[in-house]
Write a protein that binds this DNA or RNA. Structure first.
Lengths: 333, 333
DNA sequence: CAACATTATTGGAACGGTCCAAATCTGACA
DNA sequence: TGTCAGATTTGGACCGTTCCAATAATGTTG
């Protein structure tokens, strides 16, 4: 029960395999009558195109690799999903790999993707062992787009939302609302994303002569909950918090609910990323909107332009962000 | 700057391409000295295995297709991630496609996967147009595993957590705790998953002479929130709710918080799936634990056993579930 | 050291497409 | 009706691997 090949189709249709190939490629050279006849035979035989065979001769495989550091995080899941769907709409398939922040695993899955002949790679990298991942990509000469986090400056074009500005918007909003002791909660120290997201916060506080307070930690709900306790016990004077991301912020909300601490004008909380849940939580979470779905679609467009028209992407892109004000920071005035 | 092939390696190492091929396949037939020499040349030339070419001759491509109806839902994201990682650990790459419940899109991505030569497909299908998706899979003669939702009984082996039993456990727990007016919230009417999850609930209520109350709806946080309002206004006598899934339940918690309605012994809420967030919400959410990560790993093992040893999966598998009792249903007694 | 078993290695035909130069077919026009 | 340009179609080499039968190298033994 072998899959029929173009040769079977050709025999059945009474033409040569070259003609069948031309039909497959929608070549205008074949007579429409012939085209229809061949198409009919294909349908009746249940012919399926074999991309691997085609790729052997001319690399047009239409497979794109997507490497994600944490696919269970809704922010990355949303990004991966919107990117994958935008690619699918243009006929590309996507090999997705989660690395769980494991640089060794990342190097392995990237190697596997190269073996499978992906035509481009989009990667939100884990930290550490940059060479093990990036050297093979460089050697393969593939178009590679580094997104969401920059671990290897200059090696490959980079795109992400404008984290720095997001942090600034959040801090300015809180100061404007009257907060005077603003903490920055979550985010592992020293990492590029943390540094960026914190930079706007720090500069805003400096500009207003306020003292920063940083509680670094994992970007998880669990840490957010713990932070709520720590803030209440160790820093009761803190009247607002900017969280590294929404998971931390939502954990913080949950922790406050548990402690009976009211969130709103009394204690303002701002998240980062604006995942879908922000609008559904109670109180609804003010957050820096990164339009990650739009960002995913934009990344897809960038990759496809690179692949199909040879348009090189800009070395570094920061997409605009905006603050969505909801009840957790005191609401719209 | 062409990628080197086994022929280049062979020439450089002074052996035939067949020998290089044998080295690649870890054949015990090659002398270890030769093997080392060949390996050294590969490394120095930066040789990368071309799976497409290999696949042309013998189908061992190591690519598995995964089709998911809603990848943004944490439940499915967790499943996809754990399955993908288990496959990666065994050297397989995974092409993932989200369909957003669109059967037409699903048929399209499945066709694309077949073209790409996936060796097996795992699918959590969208509802509708079963033939468009399943007929090509059948025609391709691929191993296909239907998971999490059954839309096409009998066509392909099916595996899912034991939803029916989960519903039963949840209902029994609530009755035991003294709830007398128990609602079932969320889930689209008539769909297999809804029917299954509701069946245990209905039979338990019937056994205790209680009247069921069903509020069907989308499986989203937004619907859960709305349900909180509807329950409070239209059905004030309801003292407990079993939700179609955790998203609905978490939305319900959020809606109750907004209404100032206390969740716990006064109004018990149970979710379904036990996503990570359940333990972090306030109050912590009692939920039917499906061990979706373990389920993903198990599905991976099933597929690989099918592929590698020819072990046929059982036509229908229901993995065990258990109820995790937390504060939202009154907590551990 | 001949004879044979065993172990290593090899050439060449697949696999299913693409691509190109060459062959064939058309219809228009002199 | 012969000629020719343009439109169609075609044969065959090629892409990078696997696989198999055949050959070559090596070791063992009487």
């Amino acid at each position: 029960m072998r899959r029929p090949t173009i040769i079977d189709v050709a025999r059945e249709a009474g033409v040569s395999k070259s003609t069948v190939s031309l039909v497959l490629q929608e070549s205008p050279a074949v007579r429409s009558q012939t085209r229809e006849a061949v198409r009919a035979v294909m349908a009746s035989l249940g012919y399926v195109y074999n991309r691997n065979a085609a790729n052997l001769r001319s690399s047009k495989i239409g497979l794109i690799g997507l490497v994600i550091n944490d696919l269970r995080n809704p922010f990355f899941a949303e990004f991966a999903t919107s990117l994958q769907m935008a690619l699918a709409a243009r006929g590309y398939a996507t090999v997705i790999s989660n690395t769980d922040e494991d640089a060794g695993l990342q190097a392995q899955v990237v190697a596997s993707m190269i073996e499978h002949g992906v035509t481009a790679v989009v990667i939100s990298p884990a930290f550490g062992q940059e060479e093990a991942t990036f050297a093979p990509l460089k050697a393969a000469g593939l178009p590679v787009l580094q997104v969401l986090r920059k671990v290897d400056a200059g090696a490959f074009p980079f795109a992400a939302p404008d984290y720095r500005r997001g942090g600034l918007l959040a801090a300015e909003h809180l100061v404007e609302r009257g907060a005077r002791r603003i903490a920055f909660v979550g985010g592992l120290e020293g990492r590029a994303v943390t540094v960026e997201r914190m930079a706007g916060y720090l500069s805003c506080l400096a500009a207003h002569g306020l003292t920063p307070l940083v509680l670094p930690g994992r970007a998880s709900r669990a840490f957010g909950r713990e932070a709520a306790r720590r803030l209440a016990s160790d820093h009761p004077d803190v009247d607002a918090a900017i969280c590294f991301n929404d998971l931390v912020a939502l954990g913080l909300l949950s922790g406050c609910a548990e402690l009976g601490r009211k969130v709103g004008p009394e204690f303002r909380v701002v998240g980062f990323d604006d995942i879908e849940e922000c609008a559904q939580s109670f109180p609804a979470l003010t957050s820096v909107h990164c339009d990650i779905a739009g960002f995913g679609a934009e990344v897809a467009a960038t990759v496809l332009a690179w692949l199909e028209d040879g348009t090189l992407p800009l070395p570094e892109v920061h997409t605009p962000v905006r603050l969505i004000v909801r009840a957790s920071s005191g609401g719209v005035e």
